[in-house]
Simulated assay, not measured.
Amino acid sequence: MTVLAFDLDGTLSDPAQGITTSINYALENLRASTIAPHNLTQYIGPPLSRTFAQLLNTEDEAVISQAVALYRERYRTIGYTENILYPGIPDLLKELTNQGHRLYVVTAKPTDIAQAVIDYFALRPYFIDVWGCRLDRNKAELLRDIQEQEHTDLWMIGDRASDMAAGQGFTRCLGGLWGYGSLAELEQAGADALIHTPSELLKLI
């Protein structure tokens, strides 16, 4: 039995349309210039506060918080339904649970939004729990909590450097190359292994 923690965006589903449109919704409402969607995909995965600090070129916490709130205003109502489930993910999750592995979702999204996405795709039965971040809890802390709760080895599966960094030193970190992180990004971030398709995960366990 292995405990597996899956990132959400770029790992289980492709959230590009919902995320990029919601980012531009926030920028537009703040009277900032909107950005072509293909130039925003680099921001899929990292925390929203960091994204808007960069996009708005500001360290003003009030402005950043307003941008995040506007983003979530749209994402909570429609953006999460604009996700596209990656091919092979349902079959992978079904096979992993049939083999007795314990699965979690660990994401930078707030828990309620992450749960809405998982429920939208009817994936909840495959997961022990869905854990999202708060202002006072980052992804690394969530992974440590799972490891302490499960008392066994933990694997982190994600597509960005931030996923690898979160699990560095105490989990085995697997980089999924079907998401938004490049091979160079994941290698530099210290991924223990790289997998090109979801089904390749089954060969490593």
Results as ranks from 00 to 15, higher is better:
Ala193Ile: 07
Pro198Ile: 01
Asp14Cys: 12
Tyr86Asn: 06
Val130Glu: 00
Asp192Gln: 14
Ile78Val: 15
Gly45Trp: 00
Glu187Asp: 13
Asn138His: 13
Asn98Arg: 14
Glu148Val: 10
Pro47Thr: 09
Arg76Ile: 09
Thr77Ile: 13
Met164Gly: 03
Leu123His: 01
Trp155Cys: 08
Leu12Asn: 09
Pro15Asp: 07
Gln115Cys: 08
Glu95Lys: 12
Ile64Trp: 04
Ile118Gly: 00
Thr111Lys: 14
Gly169Ala: 05
Ser33Glu: 14
Lys139Tyr: 02
Ser22Asp: 07
Ala166His: 03
Leu48Trp: 01
Ile146Lys: 10
Asp163Cys: 05
Ile23Leu: 05
Gln66Val: 07
Leu204Asp: 00
Gln147Pro: 08
Phe127Asp: 03
Pro110Gln: 08
Ser49Leu: 03
Phe170Val: 04
Ser33Asp: 13
Ala161Leu: 03
Thr197Phe: 06
Ser13Cys: 15
Leu201Arg: 01
His38Cys: 03
Tyr104Lys: 06
Glu95Ala: 10
Arg74Asp: 12
Tyr80Thr: 05
Thr197Leu: 06
Trp155Pro: 04
Ile118Tyr: 02
Val63Met: 11
Asp7Ala: 09
Gly190Arg: 12
Ile146Pro: 08
Ile64Lys: 01
Asp136Trp: 09
Leu12Tyr: 08
Gln54Leu: 08
Arg160Leu: 06
Glu28Val: 04
Val105Cys: 07
Trp131Glu: 13
Gln66Asp: 15
Ala108Arg: 08
Val117Ile: 14
Asp119Gly: 05
Thr2Glu: 13
Ile118Ser: 00
Asn39Ser: 10
Gln147Ala: 13
Gln54Cys: 01
Phe121Pro: 03
Ala191Val: 07
Met164Trp: 02
Trp131Asn: 14
Thr111His: 07
Ile195Trp: 06
Ile64Phe: 03
Gln188Phe: 11
Ser33Gln: 11
Asp112Asn: 14
Asn98Met: 12
Pro87Met: 03
Ala62Met: 09
Glu185Thr: 07
Tyr120His: 15
Gln99Glu: 14
Ile78Cys: 10
Phe6Pro: 10
Ala5Leu: 14
Arg172His: 11
Thr20Val: 15
Leu186Lys: 02
Leu70Ile: 10
Leu96Val: 05
Leu183Arg: 14
Glu82Trp: 04
Asp60Val: 03
Glu200His: 08
Thr97Ala: 12
Asn98Phe: 07
Ala36His: 06
Glu185Tyr: 09
Thr197Lys: 13
Thr197Ser: 13
Asp163Ser: 05
Leu123Met: 05
Arg124Gly: 04
Arg72Ile: 09
Gly18His: 06
Phe121Ala: 01
Glu141Tyr: 09
His151Ile: 09
Arg144Asp: 06
Asn138Ser: 11
Asp136Gln: 14
